[in-house]
Each structure stands twice: as structure tokens, then as C-alpha cells.
Design a protein around this nucleic acid. Sequence first.
DNA 1: CGTGTCACG
DNA 2: ACGTACGTGACACGG
Length: 872
Amino acid sequence: MAKKILLLDGNSLAYRAFFALPLLTNEHGIHTNAVYGFTMMLQRILEEENPTHMMVAFDAGKTTFRHETFSEYKGGRQKTPPELSEQFPYLRKLIDAYRIKRYELDNYEADDIIGTLSLEAERAGDEVVVISGDKDMTQLVSPSTTVYITRKGITDIEKYTVDHVREKYGLSPLQIIDMKGLMGDSSDNIPGVPGVGEKTALKLLAAHGSVEGVYEAIDQQKGKLKEKLVANEELAHISKKLATIERNAPIDISLEELAYDGPDQDELVKVWHELAFKTLLEKMDYTAEQTEKEEMKFQVLEHVDSSILEDEMAVHLELYDEHYHTCELLGVSLATAAKTYVIPMSVVEQSEEFRAWFRDPSKKKYMSDSKASTAAFYRCGIELNGVEFDLMLGAYIVNPSLTYTDLSNIVREYGYTDVATDEQIYGKGAKKSVPAEEVLHEHIARKARTIWTVRPVVLKKLEDNEQFDLYYHLELPLATILGAMESLGVKVDKDQLANMGKELAEKLAEIEKNIYWIAGQEFNINSPKQLGVVLFENLGLPVLKKTKTGYSTAADVLEKLEGQHEIISHILLYRQLGKLLSTYIEGLLKEIHEDGKVHTRFQQALTTTGRLSSTNPNLQNIPVRLEEGRKIRKAFVPSEENWLMVAADYSQIELRVLAHMSEDERLVEAFKNDLDIHTATAMDVFHVEAEEVTGDMRRAAKAVNFGIVYGISDYGLSQNLNITRKEAAAFIDRYFVSFPGVRKYMDDTVQSAKKDGFVTTIMKRRRYLPDITSSNFNLRSFAERTAMNTPIQGSAADIIKKAMIDMADALEREGMQTRMLLQVHDELIFEAPQDELEKLKTLVPQVMESAVTLNVPLKVDFAFGDTWFDTK
DNA sequence: CGTGTCACG
DNA sequence: ACGTACGTGACACGG
């Protein structure tokens, strides 16, 4: 049977894709645009062509036989950008996953491999399609060979048949070579005849057929053209030779070996996942829904049977969605090496033996997102102890830059594909629903099985990275503590909020009226687009900054315009109050549960630095800086009569961490002497005595200190202080002269990030920074600033996490009623009975300050009051 | 569902 | 010359 053979020019297509697409980066920081473009093209081609045989040819090495003919061949070419080079290994992996043959041959280019095979195929009577981004390939066109050349993008293709070549150039395919011989090709540095371009070449070939024909009839030429042709005859012949694809390369692969039987689905999923080709993965999931998963036996427990409970088991509690404080509990699964069980929720709840097993800390549970289970179980009175492994937390510690939502996606990072995503099982949006029992049970069963299977892989990585301590003694115990804090919740005074809301709404209506009157028209002030038109077109204010969609109306821009029009201050006030009303009054009211409390969720596996984040509601960004907003905190009250709110925050923890890590003498000294750090910085930078430090000097020093923590840039500082970049650069220089240890630390950190590919915190938390070696200035600069910032921000996060664990222990040990409620990056919020206050005043700072020992002291400020507002 | 804006550390 | 401060989440708008 005749074959249909697809021959792809790997290098050329990768180049095309690379330059056609923006520089995409996946979450590992690998650039993926060339591989992505190549994949899209491949998908399209496979769908449309149904080939029986396939091959991707690559260029091998730098020189080919063509360089012997003409040493400058392909000279003057730009070096392959590293962002593209780094993609070739992935491209090869991808092609292997498709189970397509790859081929490269020393001394030959991809063209020659393809030329040789296409000739062989023609002789055998097979149909050939050649795919490339290089028009030279059109010389291979024949009645049985079509050449596809990518246009503009990568999936847009121009198909060259014999007819199409003739239509386009008026030439036969083989004459393409003659054309190159005459006009050359700048991209390959083929000279051709100087002064002869496409038009002249086509005219000459129309008359004489070939380069040889032109020279045989050279007497028919005249004038300048003749001179040029005569003078460059040898160059013309060399050029033709260079442009000729070799069709007898010594290839040791037969057409039969190119047989294509479709991709290795598992491998393809792995590679796509590694590259983070999300849309492609979703498409594939859709088409291959129930297929390919390894069969798995499990037992559904219809009745209580506690004899199945062992000392170590993988445990999974299935929840209907991520809002685990409110959502339905769908069942539990358990797994050991030999067995997998599914237990309906009703059976779990009925059984005192199950409850006892969950409560028993000596029964080891291997879970994923154990905090969600802790909080959800809490609602049905089940206490969870003995969590010995948490897959999500483990994976997060191994690499915090990835996203950890669905168990299925987490384990795919480890090459495990036998568990579906929740979206596949439940659907999404309006169509979301619980599936048939068998489907649900299998899904749940697979989760416990997966946790059991993947656990050793994750543990191995943690061990290799020396992160056992971070894992077992920080994140794992913290999960339990956070679960308790969330379940406990924070009491919110609804009436207080509602009253503030009423007042605010009235005020806003008045400001709104005022703005309309000043503007002379009504418009939506909340629409940056409409506001931009009013300010910058109708009122003619100067445009200081633009966004990619129009005028910027951000606060920093408006503040600069404040003196120019009275409307500005009203708009700023409107924005400020509008934010309070919509986000902090209305938004918060919606989050209050029946118990009169808000139950935030602390995301423990989200930030790249090791910090927590808080959602539904976010209790880590309740207003504090402006008095108006700060009043929101009056609504956060103790949940028991006559109790107090207590707040304890670390003073300058990030700069103290910096002092510790950099061992800068002046900085360490300043903290050891408990100086006001911004004033001390100002003294050193401006060379003045403490009494001479002005408000502005301290403000500048403070901004520089912030900048240092963020990974300083003169531009960033200049924006913050509203000064020129030069002035900012001068500040930074002076800072580094005063604190040379800090400069050295920053340099060393960036260097080590370049060497290792990652940076670490004091507790060995890691963050990978692949862009640190990028040739793209922006990406590299960003990675460098991140390298400087992450150890500081991350170590501070480590410290407060440790303090939370110590604090929970201390409260327990002392038998106190005081409850830890919130963490806000550098502070802890508690509610406490009055009679424990005196003890807390010493206990809390003492515990927090001794969470770790640095070479500078840690300092904690303690405050209390009737509401969160009053803890100042 | 992306963009702009603004709240926090 | 390049064009940025580090880390988050929620809301309104508008396609």
C-alpha cells in the first residue's frame, strides 16, 4: 500500500514558531513559545493529513559539506537566542512523546535528509508532504511531493504543488535552485550574482531555463548586466551548488522505519504538563476521558467496619468545592499498600470507632491539603490528629512556584496520571454536579491510592533538598493550627458594619453629585475609561501616564494633578470611600456566617516566598493606614463577653532578617542598640547626627530601606519618592557605602542564584529562578530582584510560622483559653479573656521573640483593646 | 475573563 | 537602551 509520508524540518519550524509567537514562559520559567507553536502546527497537520509515516529532521552541528564549498555559508547569522536553544531538548521530548522518528546526520542539514528521503519515497511511488519554514524546500516539489511552507504565523500554511510554483514564479520546482544561484539568499549568506535580484533572475530563467543556459547564451546579454554576469560566473555556479539540496545523503534509516502509529498518550500528557500547555491538556482530557487509566480495585464500606483501620493509611476526605468551611462532604477514602476503601460520609459520621481513629495521633494519616479536611471534619465534630504526610504541602515545599489546587494536577508534576481532575468529575460553572455514585467512589478511591503511591517520591525530594525539618516541624504542624484558627473564625459586629455602610453610602452620594456638577456631566466614576475621557479630554488635564488600554487614572497620577483641578480631590475621596464600602463593608457582610463570624481560608501552598495568603474574606488587607478605613477594624470584636482583642507584631522583621543574613556591621549594631532603624539609616546615609535628621531625610531613608528589601532599583525608588532616577541612584550608592555588608550580601545572593538556579531562606525554603540567566533584560532583572527579596521575605515568613507553632504550644501548655485568630505576615491577632491579659503581655512577646535565634534581637510590640481597632 | 485600581505586609 | 520596585486578594468595568 502506498504510504503518506510527512517530513518535517525541525530547526526551521522551531525558528519560525519562536519568532512568530511572543516569548511565553511556563511556571518553571522555561520558555515554551517555539515548542508550543510547533505543537499547534503538529496537531493541525496530524488532524488534516492522516500520515502513515513521519519524521522530523534536525540540523546536526555547525558545519556541513557546504562549508567546504563556501566557507562563509550561513555566515553573519545571529547566534541562536538562548531562549530558543533551551527549547530544543523539550522539542525532542515532545517529538518522542508523539512517537515520531527524529533524525539528524553529521555534516548535513535537515533539508538534505528530507531531500534524500523524499526522492526515495517518490521512487517507491509514495506520497510525500514536506513541511518547513524555508522556501528553498520548494525545489523538492514534484507530482507526488507537496511542500508546505509556513506563512506569517505557524499554523497558517502555503501549499506548494508543481502548479502553484509555476503560478507563483513561472518556474519549475528545480528552477528554484537556479533562481537562488542568480539572486543568492541573504539569510544563508549565499552570494548569487551581485546586482541581480528576483526580477532579473526570473527574466533570465524564463529565457534560458537555468544558470548553465544563461551562461551558454551569455552573448545575448548586454551592458551592465552582462558585465556583472561575466564577472561573477563562478559565484553563480557556487551559489547554485549551495542552494541545491543534496538528495543522496548517506542516510541509514529506511522509509519503513518512519511508520507512525500515534502518540504515547501518557508521555504526551507528561510533556505537555511539564510545559504547562493547559488548553491542550484540557482538550485531550475531554477526548480521552475514561480511557487509559490503570484499573483499580476498591471496596465500598456500606457499614461500619473498623477492622479495616490500620496504623498508617492514606486518607482522603472528598469535598465538593474549595470553600471547605461551607461545602458538602462527599465521602472518605482510605488506602494502604494492599487495599483501597471508600466510605460514604454517613458511615463515617455514625461510627465512634472511626472518629476515635481520626482523633488518635498515633494513627498516621497520609493526606493532601490536610487543613481543608481538618476544617471540614470540624464541622461534623470529627477531630483530626496524626497527619504525618500532606502531599500538597510537600509538593509546595519542593517547588513553591507551581500552582497547587487539584490533586490531579499536583501529582502530574510527579508523572502520575491515574487520577482525574475534579473538574472532569463534577463539571464546572452552572453545570457542576455530583456524578453517579460509582463515578464518585472511583474518583475518591483513586485519590487515596494516589497519595499512598506518590508519597515516597515527594519525601525523596524533600530529603534530597534537606527540607525535612521545614516540612515536618514547620508546615505540617502549622496546617493543623491554621485549620483550627479558620474554624474558630473571627467575630464581626454586623450592626457596626451596616451603620458605617449607611453613613458611607450617604457621603458617597453627595461626593458623586458634586463630581457630576463640577464635571458638568454624569458618568460612571468607577469606570477608568469614562473617568479618563472626562479628565483628559473634556477637562483637558495633562496626560502624565498611560496604560495599555488608555489613560491611567491611578492614585499616584491623580495626586500629581491635584493642584490643577478641584475635581481631583473629590475623585480621590470617592475612590477611597467607594473601596471601603464595596470591599470592606458590603464584601465583608456577605462573608459573615450564621455564627456571626468570618472564617477565612489561609492558603498555605500558594505564595512563591512562603508567606500565607488569606481568602473569602481576605483578612490580611483590612485597612489600617488611613483613619477612615481603620475604623473598619472596630467591627472585629472578641467572640466572648468581656474578652479582649490582642495584637502582637514584629518590629522591622525583614530588615532584622537582612541584618542577620548580611552580617552588615552597621545594620547589626543598629538593631543591637534598638535604634529607630530609619533614623539610623538616615544618619549614616546623610552623615548627620540623630538630632539633625529631618522628617524628609527619615522618609527617604525609609523608602531606601524598603527598596533594599524589595531588591532595589533606582527607577523603583525614584517612583516611590517622586524624585529623578539620578537622585535615586545617588541615594542607593550612598546607602551601599554606609552598609557595604548589605551590598556584598545582595551580590552574593544573585551570584548563588545564578550558580544553583535557586535561592533559600533560613529554614531552607527554596525558590527556583530560571530567568536569572535569561538574555532578556527584563526577565533577568526581575529574577535578580526576586533573588534578593525572596530570602528576606521568605525567612520572615519562616520565623512567624515557627512563632505560631510555639505560640499554640505555649497556650496549650499553660492551659490558657486565649485563642490565636489571625496572622498578617508580621503580626498575630488573638482573642483573650481579661484575666489572661497580664500573662499574655510577657508570654506572647517572649515566645515570638525567641522563635528563632538570629545575630540581632527580634522585637515584638504588644497591644490590646476591645476591638481590633483598639489594638494600637 | 482580562484589566485597572487599591487594600494590606 | 532596555522599563521595574517584593508578595498578595477583591472589586468594578466592559468585551
